Amino acid sequence: MATPNYGYEKRQKELAKKKKKEEKAREKAARKLSPSSEGLAPGDPETDVTSLERDPPTVPELPTKDG
Rank of each mutant, 00 (worst) to 15 (best):
L40R: 14
R54N: 07
R11W: 09
V59G: 02
A41H: 14
E38W: 06
E14K: 08
L15K: 10
D48Y: 01
E9L: 13
E53C: 02
S36I: 10
K28S: 10
R31P: 00
A30R: 15
P42H: 04
P63T: 07
E9A: 05
E38Q: 08
S34M: 13
G39N: 09
D55S: 07
P4G: 06
K18W: 00
R54P: 02
K19A: 13
P42F: 03
D48E: 06
R26D: 09
L52K: 14
A25H: 07
L62N: 07
M1S: 11
K21V: 03
P57I: 13
T3H: 02
L15F: 00
A29S: 13
S34K: 14
Q12C: 08
T50Q: 07
G39K: 00
K28V: 11
K19H: 02
S36T: 15
E9M: 09
S37E: 11
K19L: 01
S34Y: 08
P60A: 05
T47S: 15
E14R: 10
P57W: 12
S37P: 01
K65L: 14
G39R: 08
E38D: 11
K32F: 04
T58V: 13
K21A: 15
V59F: 08
V59Q: 07
T50W: 11
R26H: 06
K13C: 01
N5Y: 03
D44V: 02
G67S: 05
P45W: 00
R26V: 12
S34R: 13
G43D: 15
Y6C: 00
K19T: 02
K28I: 13
K24Q: 06
E27V: 06
R11H: 07
P56V: 11
A30Y: 01
A2S: 11
V49D: 09
G7H: 04
R54C: 02
T64Q: 13
T3D: 07
K65C: 06
K19M: 04
R11E: 12
E27S: 04
A25Q: 15
K28F: 01
E53H: 05
P57G: 10
G43L: 08
S51T: 12
E14W: 00
T47L: 03
G43S: 15
P63N: 04
A29T: 11
D66C: 02
E23G: 02
A25T: 12
S51F: 04
K13I: 03
E27M: 05
G7L: 10
S51M: 14
Y8A: 10
P56A: 03
S51W: 13
T58L: 14
E38R: 14
T47K: 10
A41W: 08
R54A: 04
P63F: 01
P63D: 09
A30M: 10
R31H: 11
G43P: 01
P42S: 05
G7C: 03
L52A: 14
L15Q: 09
